[in-house]
Simulated scan of single mutants.
Amino acid sequence: MDETQGWDARVAAVWDEAVLSDEERIVAIDALATERPHGDARALFESAGARDSAGHEVEAEAFYRAALDAGLDDEHRPQAVIQLASTLRNLGRVAESVELLEEQLAAQPTGPYADATAAFLALALASSGDPHRATAVALRALVPHLPRYHRSVHAYADELEQLPPR
């Protein structure tokens, strides 16, 4: 196991530790983050997630943005975008959340985080007052997992998107 894998395993162990309070988790993640070089994207991402999980969205936002600016890898970048967008939605900045998620989905319409991106986009759209478009996004993400009815569900999603927001 190389040094990065060992660090990843220790980070995962902190997240898996059920008895830690939110504040203890922040302290533990921040301690692990200090083992990485200053400005390390992964360390910033983990610190953001710890704060987000604890309900410290304003602090989390700054860490997520720093992590994205520092250049996260292909595994963690979509996660950071999703988590930042969710944080922004919780902070009442729904339009910004929608924009980030739409950009992420356009950049990576397939892949391991495409459905998660669509799910959070649907939530943000619902919060923005556009339940028809939210439902359409969710339906399109669901289509590949259906045993049949792909064409019909796509057509219904298209119809929903033509309806005005409420």
Rank of each mutant, 00 (worst) to 15 (best):
D2Q: 07
G6N: 12
D8W: 13
D8F: 06
A9E: 07
A9C: 04
A9D: 06
W15E: 09
A18V: 12
V19C: 07
L20D: 08
S21K: 06
E24A: 10
I26F: 06
V27L: 07
I29C: 01
L32Q: 11
A33F: 08
T34A: 08
E35M: 13
E35H: 12
R36I: 03
P37L: 02
A41W: 05
R42G: 02
E46W: 09
E46S: 07
E46Q: 07
S47P: 10
A48T: 08
A48C: 00
A50I: 09
R51I: 02
S53E: 01
G55Y: 08
G55F: 04
H56T: 12
H56Y: 15
H56L: 13
E57L: 09
V58H: 14
V58L: 15
E59M: 10
A60R: 01
E61P: 10
E61M: 11
F63W: 13
F63Y: 14
Y64N: 03
R65I: 13
R65Q: 10
R65H: 13
R65E: 05
A66G: 02
A67S: 13
A67M: 01
D69H: 04
D69V: 04
A70Y: 06
G71D: 10
G71S: 03
L72F: 08
D73W: 11
D73A: 14
D74T: 12
D74L: 12
E75R: 08
Q79I: 11
V81R: 00
V81F: 11
V81H: 00
V81L: 06
Q83H: 14
Q83F: 14
L84C: 09
L84H: 12
A85E: 00
T87K: 02
T87P: 00
L88K: 13
L91D: 02
G92R: 01
G92W: 01
R93N: 11
E96S: 11
S97G: 04
S97E: 04
V98D: 00
E99Y: 09
L100Q: 10
L101T: 08
L101H: 04
E102T: 08
E103H: 14
Q104E: 14
A106F: 11
A106S: 15
Q108Y: 13
Q108G: 02
P109H: 04
G111W: 00
G111H: 04
Y113P: 06
D115V: 15
A116K: 08
A116N: 10
A116C: 05
A116I: 03
A118T: 02
A118H: 01
A118C: 14
A119C: 08
F120E: 15
L123G: 05
A126R: 13
S128G: 11
G129I: 02
G129H: 06
D130K: 05
D130H: 04
P131V: 10
T135V: 11
T135M: 01
A136D: 09
L139M: 09
R140N: 05
R140A: 01
A141R: 01
L142D: 01
P144R: 03
P144C: 01
H145C: 09
P147Q: 12
P147Y: 08
R148K: 15
H150E: 15
H150L: 10
R151E: 15
S152H: 15
S152P: 13
V153A: 05
H154M: 15
A155W: 15
A157I: 12
D158I: 04
E159A: 12
L160F: 06
L160C: 06
E161V: 07
E161K: 00
Q162G: 02
Q162A: 08
P164S: 07
